[in-house]
Every structure is written in C-alpha cells, then in structure tokens.
Design a protein around this nucleic acid. Structure first.
Length: 839
RNA sequence: GCCCCUGUAGCCCAACCGGUAGAGGCAUCGGACUUAAAAUCCGCUCAGUCCGGGUUCGAAUCCCGGCAGGGGCACCA
C-alpha cells in the first residue's frame, strides 16, 4: 500500500543503538500510527482479491474488558492477520451487543437511563480494544441498541410475522422471579435462570414466539455442512437439544359420557406397545385437563393444580420424585380394543411436548410404571423381553423382545412390531407415523425495558396490527429513568401512557403498543450480516454483499453459546435464505470455541476472589506479552490457567525477538542466498510449518516454532555468522512477520528497525524456498524387533536396498542378529527406518 | 441413566499416514557476567505416554474393556 507514515523511518533508525525493549514506548509509538493510517479498514467493494470474513462474537458492554475477552480476541486476531498477509481482502469487524438487563439494573440503581451506562461502558471497552491492538475495522462498528440497528431487528420481526414465524400463544412459560421476566427454554439451566441463577417458576401467559420448530429438521440436517469445521461437541449439543424422536401419533376417542370433548392425540415412540395401554395421562397444567375433567372431579383437579404452583422447576424435574396425579373422571376408548381407559392428570406429563397427553403403558415405560404403582392401575405386559413382571420388580421392561397379547402384530420382534403397528394405525385411521422434537418454539417476549420494542399495536377493533415498515423504528422513550424502569412483572413501558397510546395503523382509532421488548438474542442473531452495511438506511443489508462475504470463514467465541446464540443464528440464516435475502443456509463455515481463562483451576469470580484484572496485566507486562501468553499457553480451544502460565516469560521472549531486529547490521534488501545456509533452512522450515499450523489452528505451536527461530538466529548472531550475515536479516524479518499475528506492537517496531515501511500487517507473507527444506542427509534408525538399537547418517535419497545393506552391516546390529538367531525379515522405510526381525 | 471430549516430564504443552517419545515454555538446579543482587545470557536434570488386554515387524497414535477428570442432556412419552 502507499504509505503516509507520520513516523519517519529515519527517526526510528536513529534510536539509540543500545536501547532496550520498552513495551510502553513501543505501544505509544504504533497505536497512533495504525489509527491514523486506517490500516485495518476493509474495502468491501474491492473485487480483485479473494475474501475472508473473520468474526468474533461481539461483546456485551459490562464494564471494561476482562481476561476472557483478551483470550478470545487474541485468538481471533491470528487468522485475521494471517489471511491479510496472505493477500486476502479481510473483513474483521467489531461491535456491541448492547441491549440487556445489566444496563437496566444499573440505571435503576443510579437513577439513570440505561443508555447512559451502556454507552459509557462501550467507550471504555472501545478504548481498551484499541489499546489491545485488534486488527478490527472500526468504521463498521455497530451497537444493537442504536435505533439505526434495532429498526432492522424490528423489520425482521415483521418479516417473520408475515411468514407466520412470529405468533402469540397462551402457554405455561418459564418465569424468573428475580429478573421479573419470562425466559426461553434455552435460557433455563438446571431449572434456574441462566443469567442470575434464580430458580424459575411456571406462569401461564400470552407471549410472542418465533417458530423455530418449523426448522428443526433443517437445523439438524444442515449440520452436515458443519461437520469437521465446528467442534464436535457443539454439534452434539445442538443435536441433543433439538432431540428428534420418531414414532407415531395415535388418536383415542373419549367415551360417551363426555362426548362433547373431541378425541385426544398422543405421541409415542413405542406404537408396538399399544395393547399395553391401561390408562391415559394429560399434563395437569394444560387446558386439556380442564376440558376432560368431570364436574365431580373438578374440585380435586383444582386443588392438585394449586399444589403444583408451589413446586419449583428444579424439584419437578428430578426424576426420582414420587408420581402424583388426579383421576379426571372421564375415559378414553382404546382405538383397537374399545376398552375404557381412565384419564388422569399429572405433572410428569409436559404440557408443551407432543400434545400434552400420553398413553400409559406401565409394563414398558418406567415413568408410566411408577405412576401405575402409585395409583394402583393395572400393568399389562405386551412385549416378551424375558424379564420378570414389571409390577413385581418395579422396573419397566423397555428392552428388545417379541410382541405378545397383541393380536395385530403378535410374535413380531420390536422393530418389526413398530412398523406393523403404524401400518395398522393407518389402515384403521387411528394414527400415523410421526416425528417429534424436544426443541420448543423460541419465546422472545421480555417484560423489560432495555430491548427492541416489539413492533405491534393492539387495537380493540382490528386486533393485533403490525407496525407498518415505514413507521420503524419504534423507538424506546428517552424520558424514563431509575425507579420507573424497575421490574413489576410487566414491562415498564406499560406505565408510559404517552408512549403506549397510538392510533391504529389500520383504522386510526386509539390503540396501544405492545409493551414487551425482544429477547436480546434476537439482536445478536443477525449482526454478522449488518457488519457488511452498518449505515444502510434503505435495507437490512445488501444481499449482493452478503452473498459475496458470507458465510463467515472463521467465527470465534465461547462454548457457552453452543445452543443459544449459535442455534438462533442458524435459524435466522435459514429464514433469511427462504426470504431470498441470502443464498446460503449456514452463517458460520468454521467455528472456534476458545477456552476459558481460569485462575488456580477455577473460573475467575468475585465470590472466589481469584479474579485477575486485565488492565493490571497489560500495565505490568504489556499488551503483546498478554496476547502472546493467551495464544501460547495452550491450544486455542483449551482453557488457560493464569496460575500456570508466565506473562513475564512471554515478555522475555518478546524482548529477545526484538533484539534480533536491533542487532541486524546488513542493509534492507540484502541477498539472503549469500547467507548462512543452516539458519536459512530453519527460517524457511519455520514458515512452511507455520502455514500448516495456522490452517490447522494450532496457534500455540506456531509460537513455539517462532521461539525456535529466534533461538537459532540468536545463536547465529552471537557465535555463528554474526549480525551482518544476510541470513540473519532474513530470520529477523521473518520473525517480525510471523510475530505480528500475535504481538503486533513488537512486530511493527521490529519491522521499522529493520528499515521497512509500516505496516508489517500489510507486508507480504514470506515465500517458502522449497529447496531449503530438502535435507541432504538424514538420520536413519535401525531397530531389531522393534527396539531402537543403532542409528546412521545416510543420504536422503538412499535406496531401500542400499539402506538395508548398510544397516545390516552395523557391528551392533550384527551382534543382535547373531544373538537373536538370524534374520527372519527386514522392514525398510527409506530413508529413515530399518527394522530387523530375528529368530 | 444416556451422549461427547480429555489423560505424554514437577507444571503448561509438542510429536505428519502407526516408524528415534520431546519441539517450545514455566519451575528447579548449575555456570557466565557483577563488589553483590536484580536483570540478562549459557547449560543440565526429569517421563516411557492413566491401567489391563488385543492387532502389528513396530502403538502415545488403531481396536476392546476399565479408571480418572471435564462437559452436555435427562420425567421429552
């Protein structure tokens, strides 16, 4: 590139020869340069170079950057910088996920507006990121809490709505009593709020959902595209979460005495056990229970439901809890035998899985068995598994076996019986094959303030009316602060009469706005697309650009989002694909989950008092030393225990590397072919290895190789060819270039000391000279019966015959052969190995 | 209970297709420099790859069975 360098190279060269490595001085020199130079701004319209998109999961602005950010961003910067030097047009943006609860809580506490806290923190973090020298394109910076951004989040909501993918329903939902809002299933961990760890309760509410279940199969199938480039465990977790199960749905008519109620459908993975049904169970908290209860039993159901309210989710989910329930007084009819089956209600049946009702097959399902034993219901065995009668053992016979007491598929083994049963259902018109998912629709309403308002108006006459697109964004009021934002069980926005009152877009009469805001995971489900076009006021993003730049080549972030952000983003991408806005179906081609930063084997936390302050580390060791430590400590996906690593060791290495550049006395452009060949071989071997290791994302090993190169160059300077040898210059220049992936300040300074114009980040990746990688001689090992017995130096191109001859001629080997009773067989892998089998 | 990942020197970690177990770092120890110390530089030591089987001429690597640690799911019919 053309350089408008504010720092004259001569100036740097004029620095005292004996100067020592001073990271503060170096940081002060180069940070302003990169800023003024715009070194990392991407030109998205440059079509002359191949493109790469490197994206880090954007941060939430909670206070300043911490050690976790330092690790993630140090790692993400490596491929971004590498590909840049390899000649790619690299997009490496940054932004903030700036809606969310902490801002609101801080605002309540400090009698402020959430925006004040949020944007102040963003400024602090932005300054720290700059200092941390991420090769980010700052011109594309975005914040999800900006109206310019959330206008499009709202627009996307409207598109989902149009396509029937956003809808409202009454349902029992997860409620966090502390955050005073509902939560999506994905945000409930072990029955507690993912954010604040408070046990969640169930509440029946009318809420907005995104119909992610429509995409369950595609979310599953498209994982093929990610195989090998996403961590296996993330794929496993998503598969697990989606929880596809195959079986059949079966219809049970209701007996005459409650004929006004329609038939109930159930889902089962074991249609072959239909003849073993002795009762039916519906979820106690589902509307179905109310419909099926007889007048005589109503009081009992009501009191049971009342009792359930006091049971926490954690308790309810424990599998060893005793089964409880009430008889509803009504009966279902067995679809094949016509037998009357009592219908019960219980909390072991989930209202929002399948149809909220199950057929009770106590002999072959453990939960049904426990229920039957508790309620004294009959247990009919219909699969012969060779086990004892479940009623006496208390263990359901769920294994393989042949059907018995099952006229229509008597004697068939399990799998065949399942198939036959489904056939029978279809013939009789009582059921069919069906697939069910554990995945639920994504609950996106939140009863909190600091999020994108749901762009819907409720009108007494017209009902639910989406806000017309040309009236977006529906902005948050700026005049609410402090206590006015306190959670009250419904959105704080509901109390703002002026804001909620609008005229209906359809009929013009007075109507009210929806007062809920969207889950912040909606904001983050599409930000990687907005980076292409962050200021576009006409459209959500440019389809042309999206198709050029995405999917993201390397996505970097923590594994904690394995099924939250990553599942939602995959879902969004598929919807956008179906809308014709993008031509790909997966957003992230490759995913790297960096490990956590621990201290003393444990996650850093305030309560443990083992936190390490990033700012202090940077002040003490320098940015480069901290970054280098993060990258070198372990493979990127492994945790780094700060107690086990040595930032001072990293600083020492940086100083050693930097001194190479200082010691070089040959002129820029000196011809390395005239220099010391052994050092050149090390240099080029290092480059070649680094290339393979970088593609393989073994960044820690790249650093190790670099250390070897520095050691070799040092040796050459001190006790070899000396500082004037052009091979030494070549080694130092290579060091500067490779080092720039991890330690940009030191590398930039070395580059300048070596007489080059900045920035090293835009220098061309060194070309490997293949001829230097070829060794003339190699060490061959000679084994006798697989044990190493001797070695010999041989030409690299030695023939198998020649090698075998020489190996067998070795006196030591001769002795082993004699002792072993002669040669039986010789395995030769020229030029490195001979194995003699004796006896 | 089911599923996934990991196990190599005191510690963090390397080792292409099965082919010399050790690249790099930390720590320790020794030496050089120094009046001394710090800093710096040089060098040494340390394991036979969690355990038990198997395949193979040959296993850290592949297979089977355990053990230990970490993670995910779990009343999902």
């Amino acid at each position: 590139m053309s350089v408008r360098c504010p720092i004259q190279v001569s100036e740097t060269a004029a620095r005292s020869e004996k100067a020592s490595y001073d990271f503060r001085e170096i940081e002060a020199r180069w940070l302003p340069f990169w800023e003024q130079d715009g070194t990392f701004a991407a030109d998205l319209d440059d079509n002359t170079r191949p493109r790469k998109y490197v994206c880090d999961m954007f941060p939430y602005p909670s206070g300043d950057l911490h050690m976790g950010h330092a690790e993630a961003f140090a790692i993400g910067d490596v491929p971004a910088r590498y590909w840049r030097m390899r000649g790619f047009n690299v997009l490496h943006p940054i932004g903030w996920d700036s809606f969310g609860l902490p801002a609101e809580n801080a605002a309540i506490k400090n009698n402020a507006h959430p925006a004040e806290w949020t944007y102040a923190n963003i400024d602090t973090q932005a300054a720290s990121f700059r200092r941390y020298a991420i090769s980010a394109d700052w011109s594309r910076r975005l914040h999800t809490s900006d109206p310019e951004y959330y206008q499009w989040t709202q627009w996307l909501f409207l598109q989902f709505y149009k396509r029937g993918l956003a809808y409202r329903k009454d349902s029992p939902v997860n409620w966090c009593p502390s955050c005073q809002t509902v939560l999506a299933n994905e945000q409930v961990v072990d029955g507690a709020c993912e954010r604040c760890k408070t046990p969640v309760t169930k509440k029946s509410l009318n809420q907005w959902y995104f119909k992610i279940t429509d995409y369950a199969d595609r979310l599953l199938e498209d994982m093929q595209q990610l195989e090998g480039t996403w961590p296996e465990r993330v794929l496993a977790m998503q598969r697990n979460w989606i929880g596809r199960s195959t079986g059949a749905s079966v219809r049970f008519d209701i007996a005459d005495d409650a004929a006004e109620v329609g038939p109930i459908e159930v889902f089962t993975t074991r249609p072959d056990t239909l003849y073993g049904v002795t009762f039916m169970v519906v979820a106690a908290d589902a509307p179905l229970a109310e419909e099926l209860v007889t007048e005589a039993q109503r009081a009992e159901l009501d009191s049971y439901r009342e009792k359930l309210k006091s049971v926490s989710e954690i308790e309810r989910q424990s599998a060893d809890r005793e089964k409880t329930g009430v008889f509803l007084g009504s009966y279902a009819l067995h679809p094949l035998t016509g037998e009357r089956l009592p219908i019960w209600a219980s909390d072991y049946v989930l209202a929002d899985y399948g149809t909220g009702a199950v057929m009770g097959v106590p002999a072959h399902d453990q939960r049904d068995l426990e229920f039957a034993l508790a309620m004294d219901l009959p247990v009919t065995v219909v699969v012969d598994t060779g086990e004892e009668h479940p009623a006496s053992t208390g263990t359901a016979a769920s294994g393989e076996g042949t059907a018995i007491n099952s006229p229509r598929w008597e004697g068939l083994p399990k799998q065949e019986a399942i198939e036959k049963a489904i056939e029978v259902f279809e013939d009789e018109g009582v059921g069919r094959a069906e697939v069910n998912y554990r995945l639920r629709d994504w609950l996106i309403s939140r009863q909190r303030f600091w999020g994108a308002p749901i762009p819907v108006v409720h009108c007494a006459d017209c009902g639910e009316v989406p806000v017309p697109e040309d009236q977006l964004p529906v902005t948050l009021p700026t005049d609410m602060r402090g206590e006015q934002l306190a959670p009250k069980g419904k959105s704080p926005l509901a109390a703002h009469a002026e804001w909620t009152t609008v005229s209906c877009p359809e009929c013009g009469k007075t109507a009210t706005r929806d007062t809920d805001t969207m889950d912040t995971f909606v904001d983050s489900s599409w930000y990687y697309l907005r980076y292409l076009d962050p200021r576009n006021s006409q459209e959500v993003f440019s389809t042309e650009r999206a198709n050029q730049w995405l999917p993201v080549d390397q996505y970097v972030g923590g594994v904690e989002h394995a099924i939250l952000h990553l599942l939602y983003s995959r879902f969004f991408t598929k919807v956008l694909h179906d809308m014709g806005l993008v031509n790909f179906t997966e957003p992230f081609s490759a995913l790297l989950n960096q490990g956590q930063v621990l201290n003393g084997g444990k996650a850093m936390s305030k309560s443990l008092g083992n936190g390490v302050d990033l700012g202090e580390q940077l002040d003490k060791y320098g940015v480069d030393a901290v970054r280098l430590t993060m990258v070198f400590a372990s493979p990127p996906e492994d945790d780094v225990d700060w107690a086990d690593v040595s930032p001072s060791g990293s600083a020492k290495f940086l100083s050693r590397a930097w001194r190479l550049a200082q010691d070089v006395t040959s002129a820029p452009g000196a011809d390395p072919t005239a220099g010391a060949q052994p050092l050149r071989a090390v240099t080029h071997r290092t480059i070649a290895d680094a290339e393979a290791l970088l593609e393989d994302r073994k960044y820690n090993v790249v650093v190790a190789r670099l250390m070897e190169l520095v050691n070799a160059a040092r040796k050459e300077i001190d006790s070899g060819a000396g500082p004037a040898d052009p091979a030494v210059r070549e080694a130092a220049e290579t060091t500067a270039q490779l080092l720039s992936l991890v330690a940009p300040y030191t590398a930039e300074d070395m580059w300048a000391l070596l007489g080059h114009e900045p920035s090293v980040a835009n220098s061309t990746w060194p070309q490997v000279e293949q001829s230097l990688l070829v060794e003339d001689t190699v060490t061959a090992v000679v084994q006798v019966k697989g044990k190493l017995r001797d070695k010999l130096e041989v030409p690299a191109d030695i023939s198998a015959e020649e090698l075998q001859q020489r190996a067998l001629a070795l006196p030591k080997i001769q002795r082993y052969i004699t002792e072993g009773g002669g040669v039986r067989k010789v395995i030769v892998r020229e030029p490195r190995l001979v194995n003699v089998v004796t006896g």
